[in-house]
Amino acid sequence: MSISAVIPVKNRPSLIVQAIGSCLAQSRAPDEIIVVDDGSDDATPDIVKDLAAKESRIKLIRRENSGGAALARNLGAAQAEGRWLAFLDSDDRWHSDKLESQLALARQFPDAPAIFCGIRYDYATRKARIGIPKSVVSHADLTVSNVLASTSAAFVRKDRFEEVLGFDAALPNCEDWDLWLKLAKLGPLPVVQAPLVEYSFEATNKLSRDVTKLLRGHELVFARIAAECGSGRLSALHDLKRAELHIRVTGEVMKALRFIKSAVRQSPSGEVLRRSVHLMGLMTVHGARL
């Protein structure tokens, strides 16, 4: 089964070398590596050109003007020749057995539209964290939050990607979560139970650091889920997610507390109460502010 790696990049000359290197180091290497340069104004495209001159599997697509990561991924996927699309963000890296492990799991789940894996999150100032979703993630799991996390963990059948029209480039953020929700309607989403992606916080131009776009993206996806599911429980859980974003990202404790209070008021269940207590503990860890 042929595999196309798709890497969007903008102004990351050193990191793109590491990302491509992790593709070439795979025990089951991709058949092609499509790098979509999204309007870089530094040496990034020239570096990719030099690598492509030495390795025929590397293909560079250049956009003169930046259209965002989602649009870049869609462009790369449209030109991919592989049956499977393996997405990789330019500041992340794969473990050497990532593709081989996902391909093996795909053979066990022939109807799965996508295969995922666990992630190791490397922080600059605190201990690394490992996140591994459960072995098979459902649409119901994803209505609560993006439990599958980073795009770099995704291994997607190209025909299924095209069936759901790929990433929604109109979303300011959370386009990955939106895609997982669409794919989960087509079949199970199995997960390799190992952290095969190194998620780095090294880059300074990460989309996830744009707080306004991050919060807006979540609100838009929340609205889409609510329109389909319309559950009081889901509304409460989404409020808890809003609280978590303020604790982890903005540090605004009063906003977080308001969302926690709203969640408990809507659904004072054991599930909501347990998550609320957990979030209260996170406030100290993340140094939330008034």
Rank of each mutant, 00 (worst) to 15 (best):
Q26R: 07
A72S: 10
S40I: 06
L207Q: 06
S56E: 15
D42K: 10
D159Q: 14
I260M: 15
C174L: 07
I119C: 12
F155E: 05
D111F: 12
A25F: 01
T125D: 14
K59M: 03
R107E: 13
A86L: 09
K54D: 12
V277P: 04
A19Q: 01
E163A: 11
V48E: 00
A256C: 02
G21A: 10
V137A: 13
I247R: 00
E162K: 04
V147F: 03
K10S: 09
F109Q: 08
L183T: 04
P190H: 02
A226N: 09
S66L: 05
L273R: 13
G118R: 02
R107N: 09
P190S: 05
K182S: 12
A243R: 00
L85D: 02
F222H: 11
L257Q: 14
S135F: 04
H278G: 12
P13Y: 04
V272P: 02
A149R: 12
L282Y: 10
V35K: 00
G281D: 13
G131N: 13
H286T: 07
I130S: 11
Q102V: 07
A70F: 03
L237H: 08
S231F: 04
V277T: 15
S2N: 13
D168W: 00
R216Y: 10
H139F: 15
V191W: 02
E55M: 06
Q193W: 05
D168S: 05
P172K: 06
S145M: 10
M1R: 12
L220Y: 00
Y123Q: 08
S145V: 06
L171V: 08
K158M: 06
S90T: 06
